[in-house]
Simulated assay, not measured.
Amino acid sequence: MKRPERSRKSPAIATPIKRRSLVSRLRRAGARVVAWASDPQLAPVLVVGFTIAHAVLWTAILTQVKAAQDVHFDVAEAYAWGRSSCSAMASIRRCRAGLRVPGSASSR
């Protein structure tokens, strides 16, 4: 009995699925990107897509990194002073003494 001949049109159906190694997949992906970059019509799309992906990725990374940091003491103090009942024009002694500044929101 003869073996059935494999069709050249659809080798994926006729042959068992072979698992490619990670290195092989990376090489194929790199070759595909190089082919796209050398194509005059696809090169601008590749550059714009890479730029957008780069910006989104680094925005997400830096947002996570900065979110884990504490607020600096001086920044917190400046924010608290800005939110207090003392206005920016009032003297520090009056604010520390608890005296209200005429015309401020809390003295009305």
Rank of each mutant, 00 (worst) to 15 (best):
A76D: 08
R93N: 08
R100M: 15
V23R: 08
I52G: 00
P44E: 01
G103N: 13
A90T: 13
A67C: 05
S87K: 12
S24M: 05
M89R: 12
R28M: 05
R93T: 11
I52W: 05
R19C: 00
A90L: 05
K2L: 09
R27I: 04
A97F: 04
G30F: 05
R93I: 09
V47F: 11
P11Y: 01
A14Q: 04
P40A: 11
T15H: 10
A31Y: 00
P44Y: 03
S84G: 15
H54D: 03
P44N: 04
T63F: 13
A43D: 00
A14N: 03
G30D: 05
L46R: 05
R20A: 06
D74S: 13
R8E: 02
T63Y: 10
C95V: 08
V33Q: 01
R25N: 03
R3F: 08
P102S: 11
S21R: 08
S7H: 02
P16L: 06
P11F: 01
S106V: 14
T15Y: 13
I92L: 15
E5Q: 06
R27N: 05
A60S: 05
M89N: 09
R96F: 10
P44Q: 01
H72V: 10
S38Q: 10
T15P: 00
R19F: 00
Q69D: 03
P16D: 03
A88V: 12
L62T: 13
S38C: 03
V71M: 14
T51K: 08
C86M: 13
V45S: 02
F73H: 06
W58N: 06
V71I: 15
T59A: 14
R6M: 06
D74I: 14
I17Y: 06
P4L: 04
A53T: 11
H54K: 06
T15K: 12
A105P: 07
R96P: 00
R96H: 13
S87L: 15
V56Y: 01
T51G: 08
L26A: 08
A88T: 08
V33H: 01
P102Q: 12
I61R: 09
S87T: 15
A78H: 10
W81L: 14
A35L: 07
A78T: 10
D39H: 14
K66N: 10
R32L: 07
Q41E: 10
H54S: 11
S84Q: 06
F50P: 00
C86H: 11
H54R: 09
S104A: 15
T63I: 02
A78L: 14
P11Q: 02
G98H: 07
R28W: 01
I61V: 15
R96S: 11
S104N: 15
S91H: 03
L62R: 13
R3V: 09
C86S: 13
W58I: 09
A67F: 05
W81A: 14
A14H: 07
F73Y: 12
I92G: 03
